[in-house]
Simulated assay, not measured.
Amino acid sequence: MKIILDTDQCEANGVCVGIAPDVFELDDDDYLHIHGDEVADGDLPAVTEAVAQCPKAALRLS
């Protein structure tokens, strides 16, 4: 699976970083970065939770 980020919706709240810090990172300018092109099987539960908890619905799985 792949994570899709809608940069227009993302407000860099960091909820996803708190849930899946191995996958998501906020830089010093509060831009969200996603590590890797595909979600590793071991990260899928946390990433699924991060997508569900995003307050702006800026993340989705494809």
Rank of each mutant, 00 (worst) to 15 (best):
M1L: 10
M1Y: 10
M1W: 10
M1T: 15
K2G: 01
I3C: 10
I3P: 14
I3A: 11
I4M: 06
I4T: 12
L5Y: 04
L5C: 03
L5P: 02
L5E: 05
D6K: 02
D6C: 00
T7A: 14
T7K: 12
D8R: 10
Q9Y: 13
C10R: 10
C10F: 08
C10M: 08
C10E: 06
E11T: 13
E11V: 13
E11A: 11
E11P: 00
E11Y: 11
A12Y: 02
A12K: 03
A12F: 02
A12Q: 04
N13V: 08
G14R: 01
V15F: 00
C16W: 09
C16Q: 06
C16V: 14
V17C: 01
V17Q: 01
G18D: 11
G18T: 02
G18F: 01
I19S: 03
I19C: 04
A20D: 01
A20E: 01
A20T: 05
P21D: 09
P21S: 14
P21Y: 15
D22T: 09
D22N: 14
D22G: 14
D22C: 12
V23T: 11
V23G: 07
V23W: 08
V23P: 13
E25L: 08
E25I: 13
E25Q: 12
L26A: 03
L26T: 09
L26D: 02
D27K: 01
D27M: 02
D27N: 07
D27F: 00
D27I: 02
D27V: 04
D28S: 13
D29K: 10
D29Q: 12
D30E: 15
D30H: 11
D30V: 04
D30Q: 12
Y31N: 15
Y31T: 12
Y31K: 14
L32Y: 03
H33P: 00
H33R: 09
I34S: 05
I34L: 09
I34V: 06
H35Q: 13
G36T: 01
G36K: 05
G36Y: 06
D37I: 05
D37E: 12
E38W: 13
E38C: 06
E38H: 13
E38K: 14
V39S: 01
V39R: 05
A40Q: 15
A40E: 12
D41T: 08
D41C: 07
D41Y: 04
G42Y: 12
D43P: 11
D43R: 05
L44I: 09
L44Q: 14
L44H: 11
P45H: 05
P45K: 08
A46Q: 09
V47A: 09
V47D: 03
V47Q: 06
T48V: 12
T48M: 12
A50T: 05
A50M: 03
A50Q: 03
V51A: 06
V51Q: 04
V51K: 03
V51Y: 00
V51S: 08
V51M: 04
V51C: 09
A52H: 07
A52Y: 03
Q53W: 10
Q53E: 15
C54H: 04
C54S: 02
C54F: 03
P55L: 01
P55H: 02
K56P: 10
